[in-house]
Design a protein around this nucleic acid. Structure first.
Lengths: 174, 174
DNA sequence: AAAAGTAATCAGGTGTACCTGACAAAATAT
DNA sequence: ATATTTTGTCAGGTACACCTGATTACTTTT
């Protein structure tokens, strides 16, 4: 019972956290697409930063979207200079998508930004927060696998693991 | 230096956290509009749950959007049965927007859901998480105020405080 | 009573994330 | 060599969150 109360309190704070992140983005830093990090174009950048030179088909599969949607986003990313497309030589149907240098920078910019607000935590709290996020994220992976055990999603999750392992590693390495 | 490394690690986990929340929403629980909680129609529900019977003008101001946008969202919410509109008697120009019972339930559903993943935290961790979120959120409020000290945003923030205080209180009271 | 505000509305637009259906070109299977 | 499968494209669509400009109806100011 006490559990529920405390969980509720925390849940409220998480809502608050989400909202504040949202506002900070809208009003403060004009271009920090936190919300678009995991969708559409952003998703593609993440996937490519994990594994460059993928075909559109492959990307679409990994990202769980139709090839048409994928193509659209890739076109937009190309227009923005973040990816390049070239025909595969083995199979002249396939188009290989790669990150440009610009795109690589953009991806880093998007994922490796250390939110300013983390600076208010001291070492101990940071450590606690880390553990907590590990636990929570672990549970969410399980929940996702549980609720949606399709093949696609296995790929999907696999990719996420890779992407995010990389992000974690990168920021650790800096 | 060690600080930066740890902050980076945590930042990565936060990215992961955001992503997982996103996927869990897409694929698992089909209708948990977490991402639309603080935008458009969702924002309006939140504002009304804090302070019912507001004029459209008032809502638009509090929510930092144009009256036209506001009107559009209110229309949509009305269509979905979440709000009702009635003419003010004092001023026949203004339209008072109120939550219906449905709308009130919907708002609660959206904000008071206790994420399942919180159950993996024990009492101590929950307590730690609470403190951490308080600190972080407090800092974000400051950052927002700092970066954007317009009148609108003061109102905006005020409203948020109210809304979220209420949410916090509600979940505590349960 | 006329002028100046104010609260809405209508009309039309932008950008983003998706989707379906139809089809061409290339690769593979028979 | 023909049939089938696969990769990608084109065309067109939905839904959502916004926005600007013009206009109507009502209120307040002068």
């Amino acid at each position: 019972m006490t559990d529920l109360i405390n969980q509720g309190k925390t849940a409220g704070k998480l809502v608050e956290f989400g909202m504040l992140q949202n506002i900070a983005e809208d009003d403060v830093q004009h271009k920090n697409d936190y919300k678009t990090l995991f969708q559409g174009q952003g998703k593609i950048l993440l996937a490519l930063s994990d594994n460059d030179d993928l075909s559109q088909r492959d990307l679409a599969e990994r990202l769980n979207m139709t090839p048409q949607s994928l193509a659209e986003f890739v076109r937009k990313l190309e227009k923005r200079g973040f990816v390049s497309r070239r025909k595969s030589t083995n199979d002249k149907r396939v188009i290989i998508v790669s990150l440009t240098e610009e795109g690589r920078l953009e991806t880093q910019r998007r994922t490796q930004i250390i939110p300013k607000y983390l600076r208010v935590l001291n070492d101990e709290e940071l450590q606690q927060f880390n553990n907590i996020l590990d636990k929570i994220n672990g549970q969410m992976y399980l929940d996702i696998k549980d609720a949606d055990p399709t093949l696609h999603n296995k790929y999907h999750q696999l990719m996420l693991n890779h992407v995010l392992t990389k992000i974690r590693t990168d920021s650790k390495d800096q």
